[in-house]
Amino acid sequence: MIASAFEYHKPDTVDGVVSLLSKWGDDARVIAGGHSLIPVMKQRMTDISHLIDLGGIAELKGISIDGDKINIGAMTTQHELIASEALAKAAPLIREASLQIADPQVRYLGTIGGNVANGDPANDMPGLMQTLDATYYLTGPGGSREVKARDFYEAAYFTAREDEEILTAISFAKPSGGFAYEKQKRKIGDYATAAAGVMITIEGGKCKAASVALTNLSDTPVYCAAAVDALVGSSLDDATIKTAVKAAVDASDPVADTRGPVDFKKHVAGVIVKKAITSAVARA
């Protein structure tokens, strides 16, 4: 399986990428780790005449933790996210989720930016970023702008990113309280049959803040506002958790595929969300 011919570019600045994207428009695509894009190019399911490699841009790499704010460059790989002790201390949810993505070889090259920007509903990072209420930074010909992860996804592979923009970084507030990323998959390396990210803060025996988001249970990640409403202010008793789980399952909209029919996926979603909430509560 050999991809169609393309011209290869490797600029060393973000401005260089944006000017190439402006010049070639739809004929150009950026490549990060390439583990979503290259398989599609090999199957010739996409037509790309100009491939712009982001691998040479130093400013897109790295993790910085500044007080309460965590900033991650788009080209930071999953392997680097897992290896960072500072990040594991500040936001352990990232390591927990990253270890459940693909396999070691893919994680050496797969990047957080590619994972969130591609818009594949099966990717884990979009749901995780919605759990964390992260902000994405986009740069295009008109300058830079910010979009919340919860507002970024429009449909499968359609996002708020314009064709001439690239996603340069992600930031989020240092999370507190309990957390969990639970993923049901058929085997290691597989995408989720159902996955959920949960964060819970408890104060004085009551749930003070919560966040619940789903992966691969709709054509976009799903932030479950109704589930959060059910949890916040409650004492996190069994009845409340049951209500929240039902609200999350109701917010999902899976399609039947090789991972199972709709009813099965909704069933698994319920199991996974309950597990994630219970685990987050236990760690809070």
Binding site: G34, L51, Y108
Partner: peptide
């Protein structure tokens, strides 16, 4: 220094 699957890396990379 990374294990990679060489069927999913372009020569140019």
């Amino acid at each position: 220094g990374m294990s990679i699957k060489s069927c999913t890396v372009f020569a140019a990379q």
